[in-house]
Design a protein around this nucleic acid. Sequence first.
DNA 1: CTGTAGACTCAGGTCGACT
DNA 2: TAGTCGACCTGAGTCTACA
Lengths: 77, 77
Amino acid sequence: MRPEEAFGKVLRELRRKRGLSQEKLALEADLDRTFISLLERGLRQPSFSTILEISKILGVPAAHLVELAEAEMKKAP
Amino acid sequence: MRPEEAFGKVLRELRRKRGLSQEKLALEADLDRTFISLLERGLRQPSFSTILEISKILGVPAAHLVELAEAEMKKAP
DNA sequence: CTGTAGACTCAGGTCGACT
DNA sequence: TAGTCGACCTGAGTCTACA
């Protein structure tokens, strides 16, 4: 599983767990809604600061987001 | 402290602790030496996959790298 | 609410050369 | 060994619009 896919999967799971729409998340993270869509589908990858922004809104440390993505990648290398 | 600076600081510390030159790190991480230089000085920020590559060579989980950078940012917000 | 597409800007990342 | 410069190319991130 590629990094973008792993990140996208984790992002979608956490966002839904928070009951947030892509639009709401995008708005609060100061990003574009279409970009969140691309990220979740693994078609784009985030930069470091984007990871920080998103994790901030999701209410988890960025390290945790990354940890989940890494774990996801190890499932199906 | 901006994200790029925090990441750069942590990167430089870990790299030196490993006794690696920028060039060696760049070579193994499949990146450019000048880009490592820019990263360490906080003039550029890494993408997600770049964080993964670098942490792999440094022998730490990417989550740990991010964690250290986050901690660095909290020192002087 | 989300996926998608086109067009756009700017920064991520490369490369060669010089200090 | 590391910093820097200039040119270059790709991809991160935006915006509008439509299904």
